[in-house]
Design a protein around this nucleic acid. Sequence first.
DNA 1: CGGTTCCTTGACACAGGTCAATGATTGTGG
DNA 2: CCACAATCATTGACCTGTGTCAAGGAACCG
Lengths: 231, 231
Amino acid sequence: MTRVDANRTAAGCDRCGVDRLCLFGRIAGLRIRRIRTRRGTPLFRSGERVEALFAIRSGCVKEVDVSTGRDGTILNFATAGEILSLQSLQCVPSSTTAIAVECSFVCVVPWNAVNQASLSAPRIVRELMQVIAKAGLEARESLALVRDKEARQRVAGFLLNMHARSQVRSGSTCELRLPMNRDDIANYLGLRSETVSRCFTELARQHLIDVKAKRVRILEVSELRRIYSDA
Amino acid sequence: MTRVDANRTAAGCDRCGVDRLCLFGRIAGLRIRRIRTRRGTPLFRSGERVEALFAIRSGCVKEVDVSTGRDGTILNFATAGEILSLQSLQCVPSSTTAIAVECSFVCVVPWNAVNQASLSAPRIVRELMQVIAKAGLEARESLALVRDKEARQRVAGFLLNMHARSQVRSGSTCELRLPMNRDDIANYLGLRSETVSRCFTELARQHLIDVKAKRVRILEVSELRRIYSDA
DNA sequence: CGGTTCCTTGACACAGGTCAATGATTGTGG
DNA sequence: CCACAATCATTGACCTGTGTCAAGGAACCG
């Protein structure tokens, strides 16, 4: 599956589904590396000057705040079509570490390439600003998710989110493959893996989802939404 | 107190302490309204197209996500020298409502003024991008604050944060005036007002702070930091 | 096939939510 | 300037959701 994606996306930039704007198409001709990261390998580390944007073509990369003890806290999961390191604008040292959750293919777009491109096409700057602002909005959304909801709601929200994001790429399907393990989900949601497990089991018992380890089938989107938003 | 601030800041733009870049100085000459909002009055509402940046000169404005039932969830408190509505970039409808927590004085800078200014001085765009990115970082910080910490740590973190922000403006002092009530603090921290109260009392019992309703004196910054970051 | 790593489930404890009552502070009109 | 009301803050008792600890089973990988 991952391999198929890899082949497809490695073909060229014409099919690149990067979120909201295809930077690559616009700044074509400038040096853009494509790299492959194994699971567990960092794309960049906290404290490093990140001199590039990272666009995920396939796979999944988690962004971790390692400053907060233990094994850090996961701030988001970037999946195919999404951009990483928007916060580490230009050459400001990154506050996060990005680690591949599974084998991933990534485009590395140097900031100076972006800057060059933006000189010739000022719109790019504006769109980039919107992408950055959107990243901020997403942080706020996950804030609302973990701050005010209880465990089952968070898990429902997480599933709905992953579902929606996979819809964008893979069209309408209820099959969902969660690339990350329960610990990562729990970390992201501010819970414990046991609690995540219990919520999965509970939602499955209500026939809203069907869980088989990392494979989840969404059975009742509307009911999940209800659980997520009310109570 | 508020009145004194108001007089001072109303004097002119030369003293404006707006965060990281003084937009006002740079785009001087363009039409910038100054307004005064009473406590409880909204600056802008969720769903509206916000066509301006709002720079807080004095007072305190809370940004609320009203989509999540009840009386909404507070995403941040903007105090003197900080900028609001960075997320509602250009004319995208705002996802939040901004409500004055106390009587506040605000500069309203229309986006097209910013755009005009940025044509003549491209640096402004880059700095603006950094300010926006920084807003995203702050959202991530509060995410980490409420996701992983327990009540006492959150309250300690909140006090340290408010303290640090007031330091920037008013120099070194341990006196802190919290403009918002316990319910707002609790909402912001994902707790209940009773819990916030209990934490205040507990921290005071340990002689780390001194609480008198909305007035807080920080006695042991280092110890507060320890509580915030460990365990 | 054996060894990890990952997932699930149970029993128990405790942090924080809920409900309720009281006290402090602020604001308003006589 | 005082009295009254309204909002706000504090404290206590109790209860629930989630963390913790522990054990067993499933999936994955060399």
